[in-house]
């Protein structure tokens, strides 16, 4: 299992990287953390002539909070840095709670946030978190920069809205309102494996304690992360109690045609959806023990 021959180029600046992307086009793959790309190269399922290695572009990594309260994460930021970041824990607790579910320590030490999003594995955690948070994905090419809403970014299995000449450079998470709560749960064959089914959820309550804005995202189920609109609608305006959760989560599989693979049938995924939706929402809505 040795990769086919390729040439390697590691530009020092984003501008050089973007120019190389134009120059090599379809013959090139972008190497960030490599934790998904290198295995497929070892299996010779990918045989690029060029690898454009982003790892020397220091400006692409980093976590900061903008004046707007947004959390901005550079595409080359390693999972481990997000996992350990106190800023992330404060500014987006959902993202923080999803990180330990991403593979294993050694993978998180190399794997990057941008790499995971661009790879667009439908069973991955981070795309679901981005969708739940309405994150903006910032793409750049020699043509310029553009912002893509998470809801528009994930187009299908391993498919994104990113153009061939574009790089994902930054992910922006809107400010996390006071009082927003979250839940995150997934089921995989083993801890660290890709999810068979998972739920990322955020819930806000109004002053009367009624559920206001709720976002419930399922991943691992269809070809991309998906908002469970029926659940969100059913939950809004309720007291968020156990009966309300059970009733709302019952709609989780509505309108979805889950995929089937040798780890899980479509029926099993359909059965997990309401169960995990209920449990994730319960995490979000159950008063935390102090």
């Amino acid at each position: 299992m040795k990769p086919a021959p390729f040439d390697h180029v590691a530009p020092a600046t984003l501008e050089e990287a973007l120019a190389l992307l134009v120059e090599h086009g379809e013959n090139a793959k972008v190497l960030a953390g490599g934790q998904s790309l290198v295995p497929v190269m070892a299996l010779r399922l990918a045989t690029p002539a060029w690898l454009i290695d982003l790892n020397r572009i220091a400006s692409l990594a980093g976590i900061r909070q903008l004046d707007t309260g947004e959390l901005a994460i550079g595409a080359l930021t390693r999972h481990a840095a997000v996992e350990r970041s106190e800023l992330v824990a404060r500014a987006n607790p959902l993202l923080a709670s999803a990180m330990p579910w991403v593979a294993h320590t050694a993978i998180r030490n190399r794997g990057t946030v941008g790499g995971s999003l661009v790879h667009a594995d439908p069973a991955a955690e981070l795309p679901a978190v981005c969708l739940a948070c309405d994150a903006t994905l910032v793409a750049q090419s020699v043509r310029g920069r553009r912002a893509i809403a998470a809801a528009a970014f994930f187009r299908g299995m391993f498919e994104t809205a990113l153009g061939a000449d574009e790089l994902l450079v930054e992910i922006r998470f809107p400010a996390w309102p006071d009082g927003r709560r979250h839940g995150f749960i997934e089921i995989a064959r083993r801890h660290g494996d890709f999810a068979i089914c998972g739920i990322a959820a955020t819930v806000e309550r109004d002053r009367a304690g009624r559920v206001g804005d709720a976002r419930v995202v399922a991943f691992g189920v269809v070809d991309r992360p998906v908002r469970l609109a029926a659940v969100e609608r059913a939950l809004a305006g309720t007291d968020g109690g156990e009966d309300a959760l059970r009733s709302a989560a019952g709609a989780a599989a509505d309108g979805l045609t889950p995929r089937a693979d040798h780890h899980a049938s479509a029926e099993y995924r359909s059965e997990l959806l309401p169960v995990l939706a209920r449990r994730a929402l319960a995490q979000a809505l159950t008063p935390r023990r102090r």
């Binding site: 064959r189 068979i196 780890h263 899980a264 049938s265 029926e267 099993y268 059965e271």
Partner: peptide
């Protein structure tokens, strides 16, 4: 007794 098989048995 994989998740999938056991889920099918329960179903």
């Amino acid at each position: 007794l994989s998740l999938n098989n056991l889920a099918a048995s329960i179903r």
